[in-house]
């Protein structure tokens, strides 16, 4: 027991460097996002007003503070573009996450059913694509989906279609890209909970007269819910803010909120509106996190 106390102090010292780093480069930047979301666009360097300058004295600081306003958020609320991109992000993320769950669950289930010594191999095979570049994986699909790409060639050769189908710049291509890129994030947490389920429970349920399907619904599915929650969250949150996949695979008529932010920042050079969009995106993301937190608390309370 006393040994444990000695452990603690070096551990606390170990926390100092990462603590400072994350505070400076993760926490503090949000203060800037918030501040600039309340600023005005200016043709200047940096392109926003007011600029806080501690050297210019108290009066100037007060003046700068009173110049902050909610105008950008009023713009977000009144302009259809932002509302629609927010709604589209939510729709796309919900649809894609549902597809991921439907596809990922059977794969994770099959992995958990493999003989023990094969399971790490299967896990490795699922993880490896996650290590190869995100951009490359999206690009690989452009190769396949383009007008005279492999998919159209195969479909034409099999006489399933008579003229090449337009795949690129459609929502179909975007969903394909999303499911492809996020599949490992869904499979791994699901597999982790499914592999932990004691097979004796299923045997007991079978002994008591359940059909395999009944056992699956009554035992496997409820026990795997924590993995479902983790997988859904791991996919849903980044997909809401996704930029690369919709930008390269979907059409340009409907934008997701990450694309709107990108457009405001890089094309319109409107940093304050981009920051306000970031704040909006954060608020959208807070909701599922709170739901998940409550869900987990309830689970813990039950245990």
């Amino acid at each position: 027991m006393s040994a444990r106390r000695i452990f603690t102090r070096p551990a606390r010292i170990a926390a100092v460097a990462p603590y400072l780093w994350m505070s400076l480069f993760f926490l503090v930047p949000f203060v800037f996002v918030l501040k600039i979301s309340l600023s005005q666009t200016a043709i200047a360097q940096p392109p926003y007003l007011p600029v806080f300058d501690l050297a210019s004295g108290w009066q100037a600081l007060v003046a700068a503070f009173s110049a902050l306003s909610f105008d950008n958020f009023r713009l977000l609320a009144s302009d259809q573009l932002y509302i629609q991109s927010g709604l589209r992000s939510l729709t796309v993320a919900i649809t894609a996450t549902a597809m991921l769950l439907l596809i990922g669950y059977p794969i994770a289930y099959a992995m958990a059913r493999l003989p023990r010594r094969w399971q790490p191999v299967a896990m490795m095979l699922v993880i490896v694509p996650f290590w190869t570049s995100f951009l490359i994986r999206v690009y690989a699909w452009i190769n396949i989906l383009q007008h005279d790409g492999l998919l159209n060639k195969i479909l034409l050769a099999l006489h399933i279609v008579s003229t090449p189908v337009v795949w690129l710049s459609t929502d179909t291509a975007m969903y394909l890209g999303l499911v492809y890129s996020y599949l490992p994030f869904m499979i791994l947490p699901l597999y982790a909970t499914l592999a932990k389920i004691d097979p004796a429970l299923l045997e007991a349920s079978a002994d008591l007269g359940s059909s395999p399907l009944q056992s699956f619904w009554l035992i496997t599915v409820p026990l795997s819910l924590p993995g479902v929650g983790a997988g859904v969250l791991l996919c849903f949150i980044p997909i809401v803010g996704e930029f690369v996949i919709p930008d390269l695979l979907a059409g340009s008529d409907a934008l997701m909120i990450g694309q709107t932010l990108w457009l405001e920042f890089f094309t319109n050079r409107d940093w304050p509106v981009a920051s306000a969009t970031a704040v909006l995106l954060l608020v959208i993301l807070l909701l599922p996190l709170l739901i998940y937190d409550r869900f987990q608390r309830r689970q813990m309370g039950r245990a």
Partner: peptide, 11 residues
């Protein structure tokens, strides 16, 4: 899980 656009912009 933070969307990269937010991390990038804030930094």
């Amino acid at each position: 899980v933070m969307p990269e656009v937010i991390t990038g912009l804030s930094l």
